[in-house]
Computed example of a mutant assay.
Amino acid sequence: MDSIPANRRLWNQISSAYQHEHDPQIGATPRLWGMYSIPDAHLHALGDVTGKRVLELGCGAGQWSRALAAEGATVVGLDLSEAQLAAAADAMGAARYPLVQGAAEQLPFAADSFDLVFCDFGGLSWAPPHLAVPQAARVLTRGGRLVFNVASPWFEVCYDEAASRVTTTLQKDYFGLNSIAEDDGATSYQLTYGDWVKVLRGAGLIIDDLIEPRPDLGTPNGYNETDPPDWAHRWPAELLWVTHKP
């Protein structure tokens, strides 16, 4: 299934509204992971990036890329949407870095080009993982790391489409997780724990850690309604995978 054209159209349509709603939070502080804006300093997923060649898959308006470039990384921001890339270019400031239009499942880079490939609800949420993960592994150097944050399958199977909120009730089959129909024909992707392991190992990657970010009580979800409000304090809402290429 080629989801690239529809996903590109969707993100071009929603880019302005998305950045207007979310940039004040995610753009204000560097290195914030996921729906609950948990600092990387608490999760220790990326580590020191000084002097590293870094690729962000689905950079959006460049909040992460901008911060890592300022820390001394050589960053490339990749995104499918030209509207998102325009937002990144407008916000770039002094810490300048290249922006490339492309898809995570068709990376336009040579093998062994990067020391770190990462995303936070970016390319690995909006590209088929069985295609995108091997591409990420291909462009990594030996010893290079793939680090990415995606929604937990728990979150997905408890999401009530009709009510537009996450609940404490199972709403769909866990073993049916794969592609998810989004607005205007776009597609996002979600795997079970076991399928993520198969995809990562199949690409030749070593899994170093699986972090399930747990927000403190009272931490708001900036993207989804949840019932109860502290859903993610009780059950894992996100998976932060830390892997490397041997």
Rank of each mutant, 00 (worst) to 15 (best):
M1I: 09
R9D: 12
W11D: 10
Q19C: 12
Q19R: 15
R31E: 14
M35I: 11
M35Y: 13
I38A: 07
I38F: 14
D40G: 06
L46N: 02
T50S: 15
V54D: 10
G62F: 07
W64S: 01
W64L: 12
W64M: 04
A67E: 01
A70L: 00
D79Q: 08
S81L: 09
S81D: 10
E82S: 13
A86M: 07
A89L: 04
A94I: 11
A94Q: 13
A95F: 05
Y97E: 00
L99S: 05
Q101G: 12
G102R: 02
D112A: 01
V117E: 07
F118M: 13
F118D: 07
D120L: 02
G122Q: 02
S125E: 08
P129C: 03
H130T: 14
V133W: 01
A136R: 05
R138K: 05
T141M: 12
R142Y: 13
L146T: 08
V147G: 11
A151I: 14
P153H: 02
E156P: 08
T168Y: 13
Q171G: 11
K172C: 07
G176P: 12
L177C: 07
E182H: 15
D183E: 15
A186D: 02
Q190D: 14
Y193T: 13
W196V: 00
W196F: 06
L200A: 03
G202N: 01
I206T: 10
I207L: 09
I211D: 03
P213T: 01
P215W: 06
T226V: 05
A237R: 11
L239S: 02
L240K: 09
T243I: 03
T243R: 08
P246Q: 05
